[in-house]
């Protein structure tokens, strides 16, 4: 692994050649919003919030799936980027029924806090208000398609960390849905181990603990890091 140098926001910094741009940016303490990215999972580059500008060109690059390169010169903040990030959040809010007032994750939701941080005070697009199902067939958890933003963290954590691959995506485009097995009720899924990792990594109220009411669902965001770390060092106590 070699060290390379690149420019982030006009600051010359060094990074490991294997790192992604996002890692290098965050290492510098520069804040950059992400939604589908989660430490410990593979990156898919789907939410497009971490887009950065390559200085000198008109091109935008997704930081989470771009490897750092010698001599790279990127800017993480600009009028255009901020506007685009706001628009993406607004698009997400318009896509499904994200009604915070009645959501179990109210106050702890990543989408909500991103929207607040980016200054999204209204949605300029028409709300689509789709009629989507809820699945409460599982003994301990509930899946609410209405809150899902298709970041597929749950799909990735189930496949990559738990190794069960209970979740996958059905359909395409706006009709995509995260489903258990081959679209069975979650409760009757044979592949689900009931580990609850998906619930912990879900950024919104799409997956929650059964019985939680508005604003009661608090997720342990360090959960995954703890598992990954524990596996490496054989520490099985959650602190």
């Amino acid at each position: 692994m070699s060290v390379i140098t690149l420019t982030i926001n006009e600051q010359l910094v060094s990074a490991q050649s294997e790192q992604t741009l996002l890692e290098a940016i965050r290492e510098q303490g520069v804040e950059i919003p992400t939604l589908c990215h989660l430490e410990g999972l593979s990156d898919k580059g789907g939410c497009r919030l971490c887009m950065v500008e390559a200085v000198g060109t008109n091109r935008l690059m997704p930081a989470c799936v771009t490897k750092v390169q010698e001599g790279m010169n990127v800017r993480t903040e600009s009028e255009r980027l901020v506007e685009y990030r706001k628009m993406i959040i607004e698009l997400l809010l318009s896509e499904r029924n994200h009604i915070c007032a009645v959501c179990v994750m109210n106050g702890h939701c990543e989408l909500q806090s991103l929207a607040a941080n980016l200054g999204v005070n209204h949605v300029r697009y028409e709300y689509v208000v789709p009629d989507l199902p809820m699945d409460a067939s599982h003994e301990r958890f509930v899946q609410d398609q209405n809150r899902c933003i298709l970041c597929v963290r749950c799909v990735r954590v189930c496949h990559e960390v738990e190794g069960a691959h209970n979740w996958d995506v059905m359909g395409r485009g706006v009709n995509s849905m995260v489903i258990a097995d081959l679209y069975q009720p979650w409760g009757s899924s044979r592949s689900c181990t009931g580990c609850g990792k998906c619930v912990q990594v879900c950024p919104t109220g799409a997956l929650s603990k059964k019985g939680s009411t508005v604003a009661e669902m608090v997720k342990h965001h360090d959960f995954l890091g703890w598992i990954m770390n524990g596996r490496e060092k054989n520490i099985w106590e959650y602190r």
Binding site: K44, G45, G46, C47, R48, I88, L91, L92, S94, E95, Y125, E126, V128, I149, L150, V169, G171, R172, G173, V174, N175, S176
Partner: peptide, 21 residues
């Protein structure tokens, strides 16, 4: 484009639908 978007990235998935609307 809206029908054929795979749904992976937000701008294409939701953006095409909103443009269509």
């Amino acid at each position: 484009c809206m029908d054929e978007s795979c749904g992976k990235c937000v701008p294409c998935r939701v953006g095409t639908m909103q443009m269509h609307r």
